[in-house]
């Protein structure tokens, strides 16, 4: 249900691939979210399967370890009746002795319809999209984008707030290394949210304010009056890079506690793309508290990925759209 339609609805995606939110128009984002509403209903049936992608082959090509995203895609593919297979390639194709291009060309020779790719390096999916006839879905490339995460986040926000435009969304954590951040900034600014990002200055992506977001090192300022607070994972290895002194200090300055959350709106929702570091970016009281929608995000991931798969590999519309 959309109570506040930002833009005119459309009925198809013009793309072969989903490489990033940066390639999508607001209309296309809304189409995916609306389609996901219908897909979610499938997951609530006793027989959770429709024939939409019957006869289509989808390869989940994961060069980086992932449990949540890979499982979510696989469930989504199976609910749409696609033939799916998982390839967990090593973290580095170089170590394996085969280049990414060769891996892709070999897969391509077996004519899959879609390839879902997770890769440690930014731009890997772009490279594959130039080589492959198969549609490429970016399931996270380096520090660049993780578009389906941002889509499921938007879906979750919309479900609770009935809109995105005008909401104050505070994103707090390791901004610099986060592909979730980059996709969310693209999506939320395209749909007219008031996006604030906060974290240590050492983890602030250069030039991010040019993307239409407000930056602050004060968590309190970011959280003040927020409708949505999204925490991003802080990785242990960042300490070694001297981005901040210690996890303990990080928590004391940026960790989301119940105390800090009081500045937010009363009906604030708390989000986290996972995996969480409890006691670092988020206090367990907040993660497990009444405002948390973290597990709903995971649940919605399946519906959103079904929508993306369906719209890219599905109906006749894409075939005629060239």
């Amino acid at each position: 249900m959309i109570t506040q339609q930002v833009v005119a609805p459309i009925s198809k995606l013009r793309h072969k691939d989903l490489l990033g939110i940066s390639d999508l128009t607001p209309e296309e984002i809304l189409l995916i979210l609306d389609t996901a509403e219908a897909m979610r209903e499938i997951g609530e049936r006793p027989i959770k399967k429709v024939p939409a992608l019957r006869g289509k082959t989808v390869v989940n090509l994961f060069f980086e370890a992932s449990t949540r995203t890979r499982t979510s895609f696989e469930i989504a593919e199976k609910r749409l009746s696609a033939d799916t297979l998982n390839i967990a390639a090593g973290t580095s194709s170089v170590v394996k002795g085969e280049t990414l291009v060769d891996t892709a060309m070999n897969l391509e020779a077996m004519a899959p319809d879609m390839i879902v790719v997770r890769h440690a390096y930014s731009g890997a999916c772009h490279m594959l999209s130039r080589i492959c006839k198969a549609g490429i879905i970016n399931a996270g490339d380096g520090m660049h984008e993780h578009p389906t995460q941002a889509l499921l986040d938007a879906f979750t926000i919309r479900e609770h707030k009935k809109r995105i435009k005008g909401l104050k969304v505070a994103i707090i954590g390791d901004l610099l290394h986060s592909r979730v951040l980059r996709s969310n900034v693209q999506l939320l600014t395209k749909l007219g949210a008031d996006v604030w990002v906060s974290g240590p200055p050492t983890l602030m992506p250069p030039g991010i304010e040019r993307q239409g977001v407000r930056t602050t090192t004060s968590v309190d300022e970011a959280v003040e009056g927020a409708d949505v607070v999204m925490l991003l994972r802080v990785q242990l290895e960042r300490m070694q890079g001297s981005f901040f002194p210690s996890l303990r200090e990080y928590f004391s300055v940026f960790g989301m506690t119940r105390e800090r959350l009081r500045r937010a709106k009363e009906d604030v929702i708390i989000m986290h793309p996972g995996p969480m570091n409890r006691g670092v970016e988020i206090d367990s009281e907040v993660a497990d508290g009444p405002y948390s929608v973290i597990l709903e995000q995971v649940a919605n991931g399946v519906a959103v990925r079904m929508a993306v798969l369906y719209l890219l590999a599905g109906g006749a519309e894409h075939e005629t759209a060239a």
């Binding site: 940066s22 660049h144 984008e145 250069p206």
Partner: peptide
């Protein structure tokens, strides 16, 4: 180059 474009593309600067 460390700047807007590398940052947006997720490339280290």
């Amino acid at each position: 180059h460390e700047g807007y474009h590398a940052s947006t593309l997720g490339l280290r600067g």
